[in-house]
Write a protein that binds this DNA or RNA. Structure first.
Length: 677
DNA sequence: AGGCCTCGAGTTCA
DNA sequence: CTCGAGGCCT
């Protein structure tokens, strides 16, 4: 891929950012997620700084917010409404803190400082003005200088006091948000009324506040957290101007505002980092969205010294949680060969941080998926992580497509062995979507089969991971399964990076792997359509390997769960003379153990479980084993046959499906207790 | 023949 | 986790 001209990209990005800025701030109808928007903004900021500095093209983005719609009247804010700069890592936080310390030192100020950490609520900023204790105005932030008058809407919000307990003048600032439960209900209602649903709680909150009919606002159950006092005039001795952020929060509470209870007062960055970790685990348990922490210097006299940059206050910073959706560029689409010969296109990306890890590749499944996405090489795309683990291309940002973008052409030849590719026919006349390399001797396929054979769920040769198998294969040490068992320490020692101890360990693991259960052995062979489950079925039915090997088609299809396709596949595998020879050579080394009769468990008889998320103490495979031993079964997808969903941390879409179907959810603790394990 | 339920296969990063 | 497709029930 040719490098994209950065000046050209800056121009495109500017236009795009401006477009979405208006969509978001003016129209309340964003088309992209905030994270995506942030990500575009950050890229633009960096590019401008690097490429255009000292040129007349340099017009840094400073304006934030949008133009004002006619239907709401404008209000000019008494004090500018800033927003804090963002940091995304502990290192960046230290840089911010060091700058704070340096400025304080330079100005001859006390450098000892403490911090207030507040949750950064995902809502919309509101500014409330009180005169003599009476609410006289509510406004949105707008561009920071001029916002919209939403006084009548704000009066409909329960958590906002219309009259303060003290007759003072003040301007306070906070966040308006909608609870996740209320959001779900609202969207459900809108669906049944045929209205478009809101994309997220913040849009819903924003939409609800900008209603010309304020009774609608009242019905929408908007909630608030207030966190700042911009101005305060008081004749009352009980109400004095706060000198710190902590006093501010206390005072706000005293004035009957709704104040978030999670805020903490800390003296060190270490404490802040712990709090960050704690909250990043807890964030999904709140009814409001949290996108990070806001860290503020507690002492206002220090804040005054620190002042403002052109863009943001120096005395505070937003420490954001890792973005879950970001943009990046598809540098190339590369075709990978699987163990069965299946060819899978994978997008190679400019590395980006998503949900805490650096992502450089994402599977595209097949051509049809690429078609659906309308993806071309060189495109800018939005990436997210499915179930917080596997990177996924969500969609293409067409506006950023470079002129030299290339279409992905499905390979005519296998990228590894060069033989022709084809699609498989399935059933009568119809053709499957996946493309295959039909050469069984294809080196890539052979390596993948060997990896599968040695894997944990197969022969479980400990220490024989993907890259080691690859290395062995490339050096001609292994080409077929029996080769593993004919390796000597001397063979391995010849390879680079293999010291004596390491070689010895590998030989030992190979030795240990010789004892296997029948189902694991069958699985390891990698027979087409025989996965873990089917291997188990075969093992249970036939008990000994020879009977599986010699089973007739008729016998196979009679087994519950095995149909024509699988029976065919099994038959063909054992009919193949090369396979038979290989097996003969292999079985000399292998000792197939009898499966122990099930430990008379029947507690879970007939119960079907589905697992989602990470369990705190037990591994997924262990749980599966336990459930099976007790007579239950584990399925990979939720259906109405599912009895229980075993819920771990960061559950995926199965959680939502389960909720829809009203399936009982239990966590690890409940599971163990329930079945007295 | 159609629809639901499951399984198999491929995938990512630390 | 997601997708496609095999198996089985209606």
């Amino acid at each position: 891929m040719k490098k994209i001209d950065s000046v050209e990209r800056i121009k495109q990005l500017r236009e795009l950012v401006e477009y979405h800025r208006q969509k978001y701030h003016r129209d309340d109808a964003p088309e992209i997620s905030d994270e995506t928007y942030d990500s575009l903004m950050r890229e633009l900021e960096v590019l401008e700084k690097v490429k255009l500095k000292n040129t007349k093209e340099f017009t840094p983005i400073e304006k934030v917010g949008g133009k004002i719609l006619d239907k709401f009247t404008k209000v000019r804010h008494e004090t500018s409404q800033w927003s804090y700069d963002n940091v995304f890592s502990k290192e960046e936080l230290i840089i911010w803190d060091t700058r704070v310390e340096n400025i304080l030192k330079k100005e001859g100020f006390e450098i000892k400082r403490s911090y207030i950490c507040e949750l950064k609520i995902d809502g919309l900023k509101i500014i409330l003005t009180y005169k003599n204790g009476e609410l006289i105005q509510g406004a949105t932030r707008g561009d920071g200088e001029v916002g919209e008058d939403i006084t009548e809407n704000v009066r409909m919000i329960e958590s906002i006091p219309k009259k303060l307990p003290f007759p003072i003048d003040c301007i306070v600032v906070g966040e308006a948000w909608m609870a996740k439960d209320d959001f779900d209900l609202l969207n459900k209602e809108r669906t049944s009324n045929g209205e478009p649903v809101f994309a997220n709680t913040r849009n819903a909150a924003a939409g609800s506040l900008r209603q010309l009919d304020t009774s609608v606002t009242g019905k929408r159950k908007i909630k608030t957290f207030i966190y700042a006092i911009d101005e305060l005039v008081s004749n009352n001795k009980k109400i004095v101007k706060p000198k710190t952020q902590k006093e501010t929060l206390d005072l706000l509470e005293k004035l009957s505002f709704s104040v978030n209870k999670e805020s903490r007062h800390f003296n060190s960055l270490e404490e802040i980092n712990d709090f960050y970790d704690l909250q990043s685990n807890k964030k999904n348990s709140y009814q409001y969205g949290v996108d990070g922490l806001v860290i503020k210097i507690n002492d206002f006299s220090q804040c005054d010294v620190l002042g403002y940059t052109a863009k943001a206050p120096r005395f505070g910073i937003a420490f954001k949680f890792p973005a879950e959706e970001v943009t990046t560029i598809v540098e190339d689409i590369v075709v990978q060969v699987g163990r069965t010969g299946a060819l899978t296109p994978v997008a190679h990306l400019v590395p980006v941080r998503v949900a805490g890890s650096l992502v450089s590749r994402a599977t595209l499944h097949n051509e049809e998926e690429i078609e659906r996405l309308g993806l071309m090489i060189g495109d800018t795309v939005i990436i997210k992580k499915a179930g917080d683990v596997i990177p996924e291309v969500v969609r293409v940002i067409l506006e950023l497509r470079p002129k030299n973008s290339k279409k992905f052409l499905p390979p005519i030849h296998c990228p590894i062995c060069g033989s022709l590719t084809e699609k498989k026919s399935i059933g009568k006349g119809s053709i499957g979507v996946a493309l295959y390399c039909v050469n069984k001797k294809c080196f890539a396929q052979e390596v993948e089969r060997l990896i599968h054979f040695a894997s944990k769920k197969g022969m479980n040769i400990v220490g024989m991971g993907d890259s080691i198998v690859e290395q062995f294969a490339e050096n001609g040490l292994v080409g077929s399964f029996p080769d593993f068992y004919e390796l000597t320490e001397g063979d391995i020692l010849g390879l680079p990076l293999f010291a004596e101890l390491k070689s010895k360990n590998i030989i030992e693991s190979i030795e240990k792997s010789k004892k296997v259960t029948l189902h694991r052995f069958l699985y390891a062979l990698g027979i087409l359509h025989v996965g873990e489950e089917t291997a188990y079925l075969l093992a249970e039915h036939f008990k000994v390997f020879d009977k599986v090997k010699n089973a007739s088609y008729e016998e196979l299809v009679l087994i519950d769960g095995i149909g024509e396709v699988v029976a065919d596949s099994v038959q063909n595998y054992f009919k193949d003379s090369e396979n038979r020879e290989m097996l003969e050579r292999l079985l000399v080394h292998i000792k197939i153990e009898k499966i122990q009769p099930k430990k008379g468990g029947s507690v879970l008889k007939g119960k079907t479980f589905v697992l989602t998320g990470t369990l705190p103490n037990i591994s997924r495979d262990e749980v599966k084993k336990i459930i099976k031993e007790l007579g239950g079964s584990v399925s990979s997808s939720v259906s109405k046959n599912t009895d229980y969903i075993l819920l771990g941390e960061n559950p995926g879409t199965k959680y939502d499906e389960g909720q829809k179907l009203g399936i009982k959810m239990i966590d690890e603790e409940e599971f163990l207790k329930l079945f007295k394990l």
